[in-house]
Simulated assay, not measured.
Amino acid sequence: MRISTGTRRWMLAAALCGGLITGCSSGSGGGDSDEKAQARPATDSKPLAQGALRPLLLTQADLGTGYLQVQEKPGTDKFGDVSVQGCPSLEKLGQRGDEMMFASKAETSFTYDTKATLGEELHSDRPSVLSSKLSELFGAYTACPTYTMTAGDTPIEVKIAKSATPKLGDEQFAYTSTMELPSGAQVLKTMAVRKGNVAVMLVGAPALVDRHIEAAVGKVPAGR
């Protein structure tokens, strides 16, 4: 199954070094948990524009010493040749493509101590849209405990495990992805928190995601 352009970022962010981030860091994933403080949106406010999201992104000042922001070259397509096999839910998701994207997005990424990495995406849409699409996306990723992702000619075995989430925002989603790479097993953690009409997503070394998710969510004002 070939992954459409609109879904590649989610795929790589979830399970492949070089998605939102520039590399991977070894680590251990969090424990499985089906207990999430899910809240149905009481209001359906309009999405924020990209310009309103950018000031809400994490900065080097927020993260502390040892972090370096990654400057990406404009027009670089890191997702052009990615496919996945062995997971019907992801295959179905891939066929839907751009309809799974949100109204607006802002992003940034960092390296830590030149080894570990942390990427952040902020998405905005109506709360009901964020809620339904995040549930569908994370449900698809956690539906298959294992699958194979191919980047170019390189097959990568991926193992997925649900992760516990902190009690932040209105809804929380998280899982860890373990990639069996030639250099050894590498682990990424993907966590998303919806706060009103903004979704905060961190992807990277599990320890860094856990360390900074509260600060990332805290930059989104209440009542959005």
Rank of each mutant, 00 (worst) to 15 (best):
M1T: 09
R2C: 00
R2V: 12
S4I: 02
S4V: 10
G6M: 00
R8E: 11
W10I: 07
L12D: 04
L12I: 02
L16D: 01
C17H: 11
G18F: 07
G19P: 00
I21P: 00
I21C: 10
S25V: 06
S26I: 13
S28E: 13
S28N: 12
G30K: 12
G30A: 11
G31D: 13
S33H: 08
D34Q: 14
D34M: 13
A39N: 15
A42F: 10
S45D: 05
P47S: 03
A52T: 13
A52P: 09
A52Q: 15
A52D: 14
R54L: 13
P55H: 03
Q60H: 08
Q60N: 13
D62P: 05
T65R: 13
G66N: 05
L68G: 12
Q71L: 11
Q71H: 14
P74T: 01
G75R: 03
G80K: 08
S83N: 10
C87L: 06
S89D: 07
S89R: 12
G97I: 04
M100A: 12
M101H: 08
M101R: 15
A103N: 11
A106I: 06
A106W: 03
S109G: 04
F110Y: 09
L118I: 03
H123W: 14
R126T: 10
P127V: 06
S128T: 09
S131L: 05
S132Y: 10
Y141T: 07
T146Q: 14
Y147N: 04
M149W: 01
M149S: 07
M149R: 04
M149L: 14
D153A: 13
D153M: 15
P155E: 09
P155H: 00
K159D: 02
K159S: 12
A161F: 07
K162F: 08
L168F: 09
L168K: 02
F173T: 00
T176K: 03
M179A: 13
E180L: 15
L181Y: 11
S183N: 13
A185E: 14
Q186D: 09
A192T: 02
V193Q: 09
G196E: 02
V200I: 12
V200Q: 07
V203T: 12
P206F: 00
A207N: 08
L208Y: 00
V209L: 05
D210P: 04
A215H: 05
A215F: 01
A216E: 08
V217H: 11
P221R: 01
A222I: 06
G223E: 09
